[in-house]
Simulated scan of single mutants.
Amino acid sequence: MDKIKNIDWFKNEIANNLKGYELIYKSFEDGDFGSLNQVEFNSEKISGNIDFWGLGWLGIFVWDSIEEQELLNILLEPHQNEEKEKALKKMQELL
């Protein structure tokens, strides 16, 4: 069974592989889709954030700072598990 994708998953599976990135962790109790755990990532080339919502929503934004263009901007609903896996994989490839 797939691991639940949340802030702890990010810290354990992704954060250690992000060499050269500044990681900023934020939490908000009352977001649009429940509580929000957000990771902001910044490097010279790529920046963005990933939002893990308490109600199961997932948001990913990735920006290319050199080309000044959006690489990924997606908000997925709780039931879109296959799409979440694809989006997280795409995010990892971009980073």
Score class of each variant (00 low, 15 high):
D2I: 13
D2P: 12
K3I: 12
K3S: 14
K5S: 02
K5M: 09
I7A: 13
K11H: 05
N12E: 15
E13R: 04
N16E: 15
N16F: 15
N16R: 14
N16Y: 15
N17I: 10
N17K: 13
N17Q: 13
L18G: 06
L18C: 08
K19G: 07
K19V: 14
Y21F: 14
E22T: 09
I24C: 01
Y25Q: 10
K26N: 07
S27N: 10
F28I: 00
E29V: 00
D30V: 06
G31D: 03
G31S: 06
G31M: 00
D32V: 00
D32N: 10
N37R: 07
Q38R: 15
Q38K: 11
V39P: 01
E40G: 03
E40L: 05
E40D: 10
F41C: 02
N42D: 12
N42F: 11
N42W: 07
S43Q: 12
K45I: 09
I46N: 08
G48V: 00
I50M: 04
I50R: 02
F52R: 01
W53Q: 06
W53V: 02
L55Y: 13
W57P: 02
W57F: 15
W57H: 14
L58V: 14
F61N: 09
F61A: 04
V62H: 06
V62W: 08
W63S: 04
D64S: 09
I66D: 01
E67C: 07
E68W: 05
Q69Y: 12
Q69S: 14
L71W: 05
L71G: 05
L72P: 04
L72C: 07
N73Q: 05
L75H: 11
L76V: 08
L76H: 09
L76E: 11
L76M: 10
E77Q: 12
E77Y: 12
Q80W: 03
E82F: 04
K84R: 05
E85R: 10
K86H: 11
A87E: 05
L88K: 05
L88I: 15
K89P: 00
K89I: 11
Q92K: 11
L95K: 03
L95R: 01
